[in-house]
Write a protein that binds this DNA or RNA. Structure first.
Lengths: 352, 352
DNA sequence: TTGTACGCGTTATCAG
DNA sequence: CTGATAACGCGTACAA
């Protein structure tokens, strides 16, 4: 009701709303409205704004597990760093939708998801997004961007780390150091993040003309339980087969890397003197004290920022239907590059 | 527009809205509405719902610096853990207002603060909240709760850690171990968190009949620059004066604790064999590898949760003006207890 | 028990 | 350039 403040009325919408229509208005009235608004501490109601088909400058963040779990290392915090920063730059505030549904009556996931419609658009995090509910959202044209590759849901925009290229780069690094026989240890998981790494690993291996253990065995080992499968004996056997570099993928638990470190140590080998070790990702927090692994870092903050940019891009699209003739430039690729990390666990093979 | 679905119209609100008024309605129609809603995939527009209900189930979180700075250890993350959890329990979503105002025109602090009115109520974090702007908010009856003690702003609700009692408990612990001469090292800072610690320290000292260095010198040392003031010589001198236990306060930088550790080590003493050390708070991240300090932990998550409870309490007050005769029970105390941490840096004095 | 009508706070359209 | 007026989609007294 700031309209009573000064003398005007609809004008308030214009000056406070950014005057999208490009309507000219007296600087004086503009100032008066602004003053009155500040005086009364008036702020346009986001709900009403939204209802009137405008936008409320709110970006949603929906995560299926708690956004801030007690264990920092399992949280989405690193993404949020980038999300918050980029959102601030673009003039958006953030709404954190708590994935765990409130104590209310029907606390099913689908209902909870609909709440995001309050915001102009929404970012989604986490593996277990209920597909059906999300499907409805995107089919309705609601702007949504998923952080992390997600192809199953056609039509859902996403940004993801380029694990293929990053993994390939690590292999190329090992090849350049002189390693000829390299193996990859991965967990028994078919997440895109996992298969992408394997893809990049194999591709780079082929391109460099490298191989796995002698005898033509598969250079990729899947271990449902790395602690049990990746033993000192296993490492010794591979070593005997000419393998000089071991690569592990990063997972939530870091089990593969942990098992590899333990097994190599147990085999009486040390890195990078005897064998080279590389990690496709970052080490778990409890292993942070160890020598920095050769590998790459997932640019989580960058991903968050990229997701925000993608989302505001979507907003601009359906927000300015007949706007300028300049087409909205779509992101060239939804992939964000990972940063190669030289680390201290890889070096030339013993013979070199 | 699901009203066209079945045959009814307003009824849709009732059945989908939970029928708070206890109005009776045919099970048949109810079922029909439900069926139609599912059929069309109809969901009440949250925005419209908020508009009609004059409440948006949104809790604001305003921090004057970025909520998620790059350096994790300086962030408000630990508080957010509790805030998010409690907010979810109470059925609220969170709006993150970044202190840095958006790219809009006047980016002054006061304007940025007014944005919080968008939410039903707001939590404030950080030392440098602009008093004037906050003053206006609370004077207008806007529900606000500050995390951390803040007495200057009369009328502003707050929750804070009970540093007085926690510090006293640490002293009592040292006394029980047999220490008779104890000193406190604090920085030259008059924040409530700092003065409270000193107060608790002194009170417990008096109550236990303990003293500082012999000669009646003040048991509390203020050092503007701990690295310069708290030297090995200083420690040796105190030790010669009979001091067997050194206590440091926690600060943003952890400078006092860091200086104390360095100085004690430099003096050729070791804890807890020669002297006992205690920290009134948690050690800085880079010192996390050291032996766990005796002291206490600030219950940041608890504080966040308590703040949310306080805020929703305020909401209930002015939200149900003429509601039930049952008065809203105000929190007994805005203080949250700290958790004593036994740690490994304190033990009986050498003579014991 | 169910339908009618109004208002919530904004934005957009259209006269003045 | 500025002041009315009509939606927006839903809650809710009130009437049927």
């Amino acid at each position: 009701m700031a309209r009573l403040a000064g003398v005007s009325q609809t004008t308030v919408s214009l000056v406070l709303g950014g005057n999208k229509q490009g309507i000219a208005l007296h600087e004086e009235t503009r100032a008066r409205v602004l003053a009155a608004a500040r005086e009364l501490g008036y702020v346009p109601d986001p709900a009403a704004r939204r209802l009137a088909a405008a936008r409320n400058n709110l970006l949603g963040v929906f995560s299926f597990t708690a956004t801030f779990p007690t264990a920092v290392e399992h949280s989405y915090y690193p993404f949020l760093v980038g999300v918050e920063q980029e959102a601030a730059v673009q003039g958006f505030d953030l709404v954190l939708f708590t994935g765990s549904s409130p104590g209310g009556a029907q606390a099913d996931a689908s209902g909870a998801l609909e709440r995001v419609r309050l915001a102009d658009g929404c970012l989604f995090l986490g593996r277990h997004v209920p597909a059906a509910a999300l499907r409805r959202l995107v089919d309705d044209g609601y702007p949504a961007v998923h952080i992390g590759r997600r192809d199953e849901l056609s039509g859902l925009a996403w940004v993801g780390a380029d694990y293929v290229e990053a993994s390939a780069e690590v292999v190329r690094h090992l090849a350049a150091l002189g390693h000829r026989r390299v193996v990859l240890v991965r967990e028994d998981d078919d997440a895109p993040a996992s298969t992408d790494r394997e893809r990049g690993f194999r591709a780079a291996l082929d391109a460099a003309g490298l191989a796995g253990p002698e005898g033509g065995a598969d250079p990729v080992t899947r271990a449902a339980d790395p602690a049990a499968g990746i033993t000192s004996e296993w490492v010794r056997a591979r070593y005997a087969e000419g393998v000089t570099a071991f690569v592990a993928e990063e997972t939530d638990t870091g089990a593969a890397w942990r098992a590899l470190l333990t097994a190599v140590e147990g085999a009486g080998l040390s890195a990078p003197a005897d064998v080279s070790l590389a990690l496709l990702g970052s080490p778990p927090a409890d292993l942070a004290g160890r020598p920095e692994p050769t590998g790459f870092d997932i640019p989580r903050a960058e991903l968050g920022a990229a997701a925000v940019r993608a989302l505001t891009g979507l907003l601009a699209e359906d927000g300015a239907p007949t706007a300028s003739t300049v087409p909205t430039v779509p992101a060239a690729t939804p992939f964000v590059a990972c940063a190669f990390r030289a680390g201290h666990t890889a070096g030339p093979p013993p013979g070199a």
